[in-house]
Structure formats: C-alpha cells, structure tokens
Design a protein around this nucleic acid. Sequence first.
DNA 1: GAACCCATCATTTTT
DNA 2: TGATGGGTTC
Length: 817
Amino acid sequence: MQGLNDRQEEACSYVEGPLLILAGAGSGKTRVITHRIAYLIEECNVNPFNILAITFTNKAAKEMRERVDNLIGFGAESVWVSTFHSMCVRILRRFYDRLGGNNNFSIYDTDEQKTVMKEVLRLLNLDPKQYPEKKILSIISKAKEEYISPDDMERQSFGNFGDIKIAQCYREYQKRLKANNALDFDDLIFKTIQLFERHPDVLEMYQERFKYIMVDEYQDTNHTQFILVKQLSAKYRNLCVVGDDDQSIYKFRGADISNILDFESVFPDAKVVRLEQNYRSTSNILNAANAVIANNKGRKKKTLWTDKGDGEKIHFTKYENEFIEAQRVTEKILEINEKGVPLSDIAVLYRTNMQSRVLEEKLILTSTPYKIYGGQNFYGRKEIRDIVSYLKAIDNPADGSSFKRIINVPRRGIGDTTVNRIWDYAAENDMSVYDAMLMADKLPDIKRAAGKIGEFVKLMEGLRELSREGDITALYDEIMDKTGYKVELEAEGTDEAKARLENLEELRNKIIQYERDAEEPSLTELLEDIALVADVDNEDGLEDGALGGNGFVTLMTLHSAKGLEFPYLFIVGMEERLFPSGLSMDSGDPDDLEEERRLCYVGITRAMKELYLSAAASRMVSGSRIYPSESRFIEEIPDELIDMKEEFPGMRRNAFDNGAFGGRGSSGGYGSASYGGGSGNYGSSYGGSSYGSGSYGSGSYGSSSGGRGASYGGSDRGGSGAGSSYGSTTGSRSRSTTGRSAFASYGGTNPYKKEAPSGSGAFTVDYAVGDTVKHIKFGKGKVTELIKTGNEYEVTVDFDRVGEKKMFASLARLKKL
DNA sequence: GAACCCATCATTTTT
DNA sequence: TGATGGGTTC
C-alpha cells in the first residue's frame, strides 16, 4: 500500500469485524476507502462481488466508482458502489411484491408528495391553513426516518387531537401512495427495512452477498439507514464506517450524530482508527479550525495536524455593510486572480442563499465569471417536470400525481372541478385515477367533460402503445408532438419559451445518452435515474480551471461546500444571528449551536492556502436593516492566527492603506457614529473621496433616498479596471463549460433570465431605443438612449411616473413590454 | 383561465 | 426587501 501513512494503512488492513474510521477533514478519506477495497480484493482474496460501498450522494458514488475502477481494474465492476437510495430501489424492484407492492413503483419527489398530501387533506376535510401540507409531510418524513409507522404514531399521540389527525394523514397518505403505485424517498429505506424484517430469507440473501460493507459519511446517516446497515452486517459483522462527527451538519434533514458517536457502544468490539493528518490546509487554517471546534462538547476528540508550514494568517475584515463587503471581496478576488491564480481556485461561501445576491451584483459589475451552486436543478424546471410526468404516467398508469400534472397541460379544457370529481371517485372506490378516467362517461356530474377526458385517455393509450416498442426517444418525440406541447411553446415565441424548448432539447439529449449507455434501457430505469440523480449539471463545473482556463469563482452555501476544497476561500457574513443562525441560537437546544459550529469548522477546513473571513456592521435582513455584532466563531479563533481589520467609510482610505487599525474588540468607536439613529440612512455618510459618487446610489438597490439621481453614475474602481481586463477572456469561455449551464445560476428566481451569463461578460438587452419597458420600481417608461460600454449597456429611460433615469441595464432588469 | 392584488413569510438540502 | 401563494375579479 504505497503512499499511505501509518494510520491510513492501519485502517485499510483491518478487515474483519466492525471498524470506525474517524476521518478528519482533508485526511485522505476517500483514498482510504478505495485502498481498503483494493486490499480486500488483492490481499484478502475477497470476491469483489461481496463488497458494498455506500455513499450519500450520486456524485460521491460516481467518484468512488471511478477511483475503485482505476485502482483495481479487473473485477472492480462487481463491487457495489451505490447510494442508500439507489441500493434500496434495486432491492425493492426485485422484492417489493413480497410486501404486497408492485415492483414497478414510481418514486415521488417533494412536489408529487405535496400533490398527494393535498388530496389527503381534502379527503379528510382538514383545513390546509391549520395543517399545511409541507409541515405535515415533514413530520411524516421525520417519523419515517425514525421507522415509525402510522399505527406507532397514533399510539404515541396519547389522545392528543392534533397528533391523531397527523397520524391519520400519515395513514391516508400511505394509502394514496399505494394507490398511485408510488413510494417517496423515505419509503425506499423504510420499506427495505420492513422487507428484511418480514422476510428473513431475503435479508439473508443480501447478507451473503454483502460480506464486507463500507459506509461513507457515516455522520450523515439517519436512524433508518443505521438500522439498514445493522441488518445487512448482522451476519458477518464486517462493517466499516467512515465519517467525522465534527462535520455532521445535516441534523435538519434527519442525520443522527449519535450513530457515529455511539458506534462503539453498539459494536463493543469495534476498532477505532483516527485519521488526523491533514493534507489540505496550512497549519494556521488548521489550528483555527481546531480551536473553533474545540468549543463543542459532544464530540470525539480529534486534533488535525499538518506538516505544511504556517502559511498566511487568516484575514478577518469587518465592513460597513453588505454592499461594501461584496465590493471588497470582489476586488480582492480580482487582485488574487491578477497574480495568476485561476478563478476556479477561489470560492465564496455563505450561510444563506440570499447572501449570494449582492455578491452576484458586484461580480456582474466587474465582469467576473462566477457560478452559483445550489438552487433549482434541471429536473426541477416546469417544462422538464411536465414531460417527465407524461413519461411517468405512461410508465405507471396508477401514478395519479403525474396525471394530475399533465391532464390539462397543454390546455385541453379539463378544469379543477372535473379533476377533483375523478380523483374523489377514485379515492372513494379505492381505484386508480386512470381507471376512473376510463369510465369517465359513467361518473356522476362529469357528462360535459367526459368527451375531453375520453380524448385524453385515447392520447395516453396511443403513447403507451408506442412505449411498448421500447424506443424512448421516439416516445419523447411523440409526446412533444401529439400533446401539442411543442407547438404551444413555439407559438409563444418569447425568450422564455425558447429557453424552455432548449431545455427540452437537453432532456431529449439525456434520453438519447441514456439509451446509448444503458445495458438494458427501459423507461422505468430512465425515470428512476431521473428521480434519484437530482442534478446532472454540476459535475464538470469546478474543474474548469484545472484545464488551464481561468474558470469562474464558485459561490455556494457552507453546506454545499462540504467535501470540496479551494486554495483561496472567502467566508462572508460572519455575524451573530446570521452565522450562527438566529434560529439555532433561539431553539433552546444547545446542539443546534454546536451544529453551526461544526458548519464553521467545515467552512474553515475547505481552505487550502488563504482564508478571508468578513462581516458587515450593518445588513439588510427581511426588509429591515440590522446591526449585527461579529460572529462568536471569530472570537474563538486565537489571536495569533488571525489578522483583524475594520474598514469603515470615513476612515476608509486609512484602513485600506495602513492595514490594521484597532486590535480585536475595538469595534466600538468606528462606524457607530456614522449610523445616526440606526435609520438605515447610511447613504449620506460616505460616497466620499475615494469612491465614485453614485456607486451605491438609489436606482440600483432601490433605496429610495433620491438625491443621487442616476445610479452608478461614477465609474467604479473595480468595475472599470477589471471589466476591460476580463472581458475578452471570459467571453470566449462561457460556452465551453457545459453549453446551457453557461448561465450564471440555476438558483435565484428566474432560471431563464437573460442577464448575466456567467463567464461571458457580454450582457445583452432585448429592447431598443423607442421601446416601452417596465422597471420593477419605477414602472413603465420609454427607452430614450442605449449606449454600449464595454460589456454593459447604459440605458436611459423616461419613466411615466418619475421621469428620466439613467441606469446600467444589467442591474435595472428592465422588461420589454 | 388569466391577470392582478394582498398577505405572508422569509436557514441549511440530498435522495 | 422580495418572492410566493392564495384569493378575487374580469
């Protein structure tokens, strides 16, 4: 086992019996797992067929698959590398009938769950205001994660009225799912456990198959996943779990940290190996992370170390507000980039998605290519969901949720009333909605719409007929064609419609690709892939810079950064009540705060070379301006590791030229003076010498404080300088990433927004002089002037209400009328 | 069935 | 502030 340190080697060669590998951040965890698999096969003569490696995300599974294949070569393909969920689907597709189900079940996502829950609420005559489906679903999900059945729940309610109602919803929901021949995500695990419990022969078959089991990211497992692992490993007891309790950050979605903390009491003969040597960060960064996490009580003690040098100190700067914070972070990024660091080596992390917005604005302004991770994914888009629903309805005629989605899309004159009548009838008679539709003309009160239903059924029958031929691409084309979906979008002709058509074309490509790559393509399996693989787009993004390009800056939440690393890292918004979040502080459960601290630990340990932390002295939150103090996590970093600064408007130049002023804890004097009574009217206190006057003027951020007139009048330091130097390089790259995903973000509000294609500095407008446009704040107006300046447009609009305004097109977000 | 208006509500997210 | 969803109106 070349290239492994002693601890890593120990972890790899301990193969019999339970083993807990406590793998600190950056300690070469994946390496250990893959090498351990290799060791099992090559040194212990274990048949690869008998090895199971479970991960959490598809991405991780894919990565591990590749690494195992590379390391082992022949025979590697028989190792099962899988996520919990896809493993369970595979098992249930074979044996769900043993539980009285249909092996051809559909998998429901949150949207479809909501549809079902809405029906349940209607059926039980519950007020959706009192029982919001989202809340009920989350309670049910929690129950399922704890392996609690509807009966258990009712028993545990001890007569509490509300609880009983929820238990009833739970029972009815399961009933409706069953009628739809569908399972939700939690069911996948739940039903597998149930299958194993009720059918020991099936369990034993899998126990024989999986003699050696490895679970990655064990700190993220929930209770049912724990049960499942325990069941599978009960016979041979060769269970190796790998994780880091300090990186447990998913309690809110059911992760149970006690799984890892109590591993040794559940398996008293377990061996524990700690991987504490970090290969990622400088020792300053590491020591800061160690110091922060040391404040947590419930943890397995671990101290990361490295033989790398100290490196630079961690930088912390407190800025006046979130705009300046974003501004300065952007400038700093460009500064680092100019030294030859590709943008892909730089990331900005934040606690909440909302914080990305202001950063985005500054990055657009400076034409800095960026990419936001998180938010809406490809399969979440309306048009994709629509067509996928057609496919699902064809594949599984019992799938009521999918039918509900498409029955009137495109419009075919089947209204809610008709739909409700059919659905009610189906529920009352315990039949599928499709069967109810088949006899629509016999249903009471449906006479008028019966003909339309008949046509729809005929359409679906035709498509199902075609689907039997097995050519999914042809089926897709027929759906687009025969339903009129394509024609409708084409007729619309808007940019949005065009973008939707492009997305659908992308879906078609994915289908073609699937049919080409799959061993035995089937509609069922395709839909399964779609259900279980949330986002296919994110894959290539991060490595762009590694290919020699400049790449783009990565923006993401601290959560999504887990498992990644960046040479230059910014964490913004280090403020009390933002990070740690206010909710975690108020919850009363001290572990919530500890989880925030773990999140901070995860954040810090993402940094390899340099770490820039920042906070804003004032920030807009939920519509009002607040004045947070800096995060306790900053205080927890030892003085000698961190370089503390404050930059405030009046002293701005000093702050900038002289570097630090005021040591820690000196925040009192500065800034507070300039905030007057805290009325949010900070605008007047700066805009002084060093900054172009209109930089933060009214129009752009909508702060109604008049006075400045045209927004962004002056030239912005970072803006003009960087704009020209980055414009050309970025323009050419935008397309090269992944085509469609060249758009700046999947998240945000409008995935089709024309502005700000990441990577391409080229911003385009769809209006011209003379057009009537609408501004979100100023209302309607006429474009009187449109000047292209570099990558931007300066647009002048004569508004009906407020007169003439000059603004940057990328920020004004004008809509052509 | 679409266009508006008002109220409400605002962590983190994968499968 | 702003997005979103429900309800109302034409």
